[in-house]
Computed example of a mutant assay.
Amino acid sequence: MTSPHRASDTPFAVNVELGKDYFWCACGQSKSQPFCDGSHKGSSFTPIQYSADASKEVYFCGCKASNNKPLCDGTHKNPV
């Protein structure tokens, strides 16, 4: 598997709604960051589903290297 494109050096803050599903872009190529727009087609990447367990603000990973995908774990603070 190739490495994903680093879409952002910071996380994406998103207000999610209880019971709604979100599909996080894993390849980093989506024009609709942090969400999938189908840009991964033909690659080894697939989006990761996030199901909101509450209506709240969450931070989706922008660097695509989090160990807690699709949410940010601070990995973007590490040198590239």
Score class of each variant (00 low, 15 high):
14 V>L: 00
13 A>D: 11
74 G>C: 08
65 A>W: 10
49 Q>W: 00
31 K>W: 02
46 T>V: 12
24 W>A: 00
75 T>S: 15
62 G>Y: 02
11 P>I: 05
45 F>H: 06
27 C>S: 04
24 W>M: 01
40 H>I: 09
53 D>P: 06
29 Q>H: 14
45 F>S: 06
29 Q>G: 03
15 N>S: 12
76 H>V: 15
10 T>E: 13
2 T>R: 12
29 Q>A: 07
4 P>K: 01
70 P>I: 07
77 K>S: 11
13 A>R: 12
33 Q>P: 13
71 L>M: 07
13 A>G: 09
14 V>G: 01
1 M>C: 13
79 P>V: 05
41 K>Q: 14
72 C>W: 07
60 F>Y: 02
57 E>W: 03
26 A>G: 06
60 F>V: 10
61 C>V: 05
8 S>R: 04
21 D>C: 09
58 V>D: 04
5 H>K: 13
3 S>L: 06
27 C>Q: 04
46 T>A: 15
29 Q>W: 14
15 N>I: 03
45 F>Q: 08
31 K>S: 15
58 V>Y: 01
31 K>D: 10
47 P>T: 12
68 N>K: 12
6 R>M: 15
23 F>K: 01
68 N>P: 00
72 C>M: 12
52 A>L: 03
36 C>Q: 05
47 P>H: 07
4 P>D: 02
31 K>R: 11
44 S>N: 10
1 M>L: 11
60 F>A: 08
53 D>N: 11
52 A>Q: 13
25 C>I: 06
10 T>K: 13
38 G>Y: 11
70 P>D: 11
59 Y>G: 06
33 Q>V: 01
57 E>R: 14
8 S>Y: 03
16 V>K: 04
78 N>V: 12
54 A>W: 08
3 S>E: 07
23 F>A: 07
69 K>F: 10
74 G>V: 03
40 H>F: 05
48 I>K: 07
13 A>N: 11
49 Q>P: 01
76 H>M: 11
31 K>F: 00
24 W>S: 00
10 T>R: 13
2 T>F: 12
47 P>D: 10
14 V>H: 00
51 S>F: 06
73 D>I: 00
24 W>H: 03
54 A>G: 04
38 G>R: 01
7 A>E: 05
8 S>A: 12
55 S>P: 00
39 S>Q: 07
63 C>T: 10
5 H>T: 08
44 S>F: 06
7 A>V: 05
79 P>E: 13
19 G>T: 03
20 K>A: 08
55 S>Y: 03
73 D>R: 01
26 A>P: 00
30 S>L: 02
25 C>Y: 02
47 P>V: 06
44 S>K: 15
20 K>D: 02
74 G>T: 07
43 S>P: 03
80 V>I: 15
56 K>N: 13
57 E>H: 09
49 Q>E: 12
